[in-house]
């Protein structure tokens, strides 16, 4: 009896001690790791990638390529972007990056005076190199180091040739573009027009609109009213294609029309998939991102000075609806 009681007491004691010890362990132990402190002396380059849009397939790929290259080169890359083309926010991001004295800025070109002033005066003041990506702004106006992206003029030509191939050498073609006429759009337009001018049977109908949905819808409506026999639409700016296709779809069969555009907008892939758009110019966003980071690091390291002012072009090709996955 005594033995049992002693054993019981020792057992209870051990049990309580076990629970106490585990409890102490829980209190003392902490899995949390303090983040590593900064090394002030050995700073890597800080690059900012500033875009007008984020979370679109095109820009996601750009960022992916850029991040990959940044990691390879051991530089910090911060992406600054905002949703749905808010120009003010975009410019603020750019200005912030300039005032924060980053080592290099990769920016989607915006053909406005404010943008040019920032790049030309502010960035130059802090001597921050700027590379435009995807959309260019002429070097004379922006003092950019170089441009990385598709050759827009050639892209326009390629698209026009595809149109001629599909539609034939005669017909009415609506050339739909943004009335603010950014530089890249002008180049595309020039390329398209250069090709189409060779065919007298093709009449080009230029149509201007803003990027606002309402305007796009209204302009499309007006176009359809004025030119009921139109054969083809080319959206020079990918931003307007969604509204355009939607309005056309309300009025007539979309399939019977030849609709072409570029791939740098989120809606394009879906329309292509649904066969609403016949073909698009496919660019290489990942390569753009990768190349831009590589070039700016090379410039910063003094390996490639100066950079090619004309720009470094990435490949383009035609993606037809039937090719689309």
């Amino acid at each position: 009896m005594r033995k049992i009681v002693t054993a019981l007491i020792i057992g209870v004691c051990l049990l309580l001690a076990y629970f106490t010890v585990t409890s102490v362990e829980k209190v003392v132990r902490s899995d949390w790791q303090e983040p590593l402190p900064l090394d002030q002396t050995d700073q890597s380059y800080r690059l900012a990638l500033i875009t007008q849009d984020i979370d679109t397939p095109f820009w996601d790929e750009v960022i992916e390529g850029a991040s990959l290259q940044a990691r390879q080169d051991g530089v910090m890359l911060e992406r600054l972007g905002n949703y749905s083309h808010n120009e003010d926010d975009f410019l603020r991001n750019l200005e912030l990056a300039i005032h924060a004295k980053v080592d290099g800025i990769i920016v989607q070109g915006l053909d406005t005076d404010e943008f040019k002033e920032l790049t030309k005066i502010k960035a130059a003041f802090y001597s921050i190199p700027i590379i435009t990506i995807a959309n260019d702004v002429p070097m004379e106006e922006s003092l950019r180091r170089t441009y990385v992206g598709s050759p827009q003029y050639q892209a326009g030509q390629l698209l026009a040739r595809q149109l001629v191939e599909d539609m034939g050498v005669s017909g009415e073609v609506v050339l739909f573009y943004d009335q603010s006429e950014p530089y890249f759009q002008e180049q595309r337009k020039a390329g398209i027009e250069e090709v189409l001018e060779q065919y007298p049977g093709i009449s080009v109908i230029p149509a201007m609109t803003t990027e606002h949905m309402d305007d796009v819808l209204a302009t499309t409506q007006a176009l359809l009213n004025h030119y009921p026999n139109v054969d083809s639409f080319i959206a020079v700016n990918a931003n307007i294609v969604a509204g355009m296709v939607q309005e056309i779809g309300r009025r007539r069969q979309v399939d019977s029309l030849y609709i072409y555009t570029f791939d740098d907008h989120a809606d394009v892939a879906k329309l292509l998939e649904k066969n609403k758009v016949d073909a698009v110019i496919r660019q290489e966003p990942e390569e753009m991102g990768r190349l831009s980071v590589q070039l700016i690091v090379e410039w910063l390291n003094g390996e490639t000075v100066p950079l090619d002012f004309d720009g470094y072009f990435t490949n383009i090709d035609i993606l037809k609806a039937i090719d689309a996955p």
Binding site: E34, P35, L36, P37, L38, Q40, Q43, R46, M76, E78, L96, A97, H99, A100, K101, V102
Partner: peptide, 22 residues
């Protein structure tokens, strides 16, 4: 402010310090 820095907020912090300088 340098003391606040760690690997996670390096970019922002340097931005911040540079902004103060600017």
């Amino acid at each position: 402010a340098w003391q606040l820095g760690h690997q996670e907020n390096e970019f922002e912090l340097i931005n911040y310090i540079n902004l103060i300088g600017s």
